[in-house]
Design a protein around this nucleic acid. Structure first.
Lengths: 128, 128
DNA sequence: ATGTTCAGTATACAAAAATATACTGATATT
DNA sequence: AATATCAGTATATTTTTGTATACTGAACAT
């Protein structure tokens, strides 16, 4: 298990390995932005076609969906499969990494839940 | 432990509880953007003054540092303490939640490291 | 032949995030 | 009196990210 606290780097002491920074940046690219997580959520529950992703991701435009799916595909989070049926069927599926990102999301939710209880605990009675 | 996969919501089935979405959004607000994590990293290794944060966070401008610190303070990630010495001393310190975010970062690094090995594994010999 | 579905693309625009550059005001130092 | 440090603020601009609206082209279906 990596320990960020030991590796964030300082003038004297161990520097954060470059591989850690790259790994962290990769992850940020997958969870940042307005649409990546909603799309991944839909894919996790089995939605796989462009049209269905459009419908189940509220208010996203086809332009954004297309752009985000391309980025996710380039980053090996999503695989695009073309079935040469008629009409053509195109399926987007999460890769192993794509499914695994759920662990990161879980840890984000966990932090957020604890954080909220800690913030509320410190609130003056009158406000809570 | 929360399990995002069970709660992302679908038309038929359990919906993702609103509190989970709020918790996730809180976390994203802390890790997203260009400067929050570099600043938190500096705070984690004990840097606490505006000037020192400016120097140890490469290329950030005072405007951005000021803005980010205000946001982190509003979100109870950072506490600002004013010591009425002369010259005035102002210290920024991580709260409990602020320190705990290191766990999320660890899980992000872990995912990123595994992801990279998985991507390389699938690369054709000629490229790796 | 007209309309419908699927899987997008094209063009223009608006909003949000980040940068560049200069400045302030209080106190202390030389 | 001039200079330096600390902790920022002010104004303008650029870059990045996201939105709006309309359109395309292939293959059926009526």
């Amino acid at each position: 298990m990596s320990d960020f606290k030991d590796f964030i780097g300082s003038d004297k002491g161990p520097q954060c390995p470059r591989t850690y920074i790259l790994a962290l940046t990769d992850t940020l690219n997958v969870v940042s932005g307005k649409w990546k997580l909603p799309i991944i959520a839909a894919l996790l529950r089995g939605v796989s076609r462009f049209k269905d992703l459009l419908d189940s991701t509220e208010k996203i435009t086809p332009r954004m969906l297309s752009k985000e799916l391309k980025e996710l595909e380039m980053n090996s989070i999503v695989e695009r499969k073309v079935y040469n049926q008629t009409p053509v069927l195109i399926e987007y599926r999460l890769t192993k990494s794509g499914k695994d990102i759920a662990n990161v999301i879980d840890s984000m939710i966990d932090w957020g839940l604890v954080h909220r209880t800690q913030v509320i605990k410190k609130l003056p009675e009158s406000l809570s």
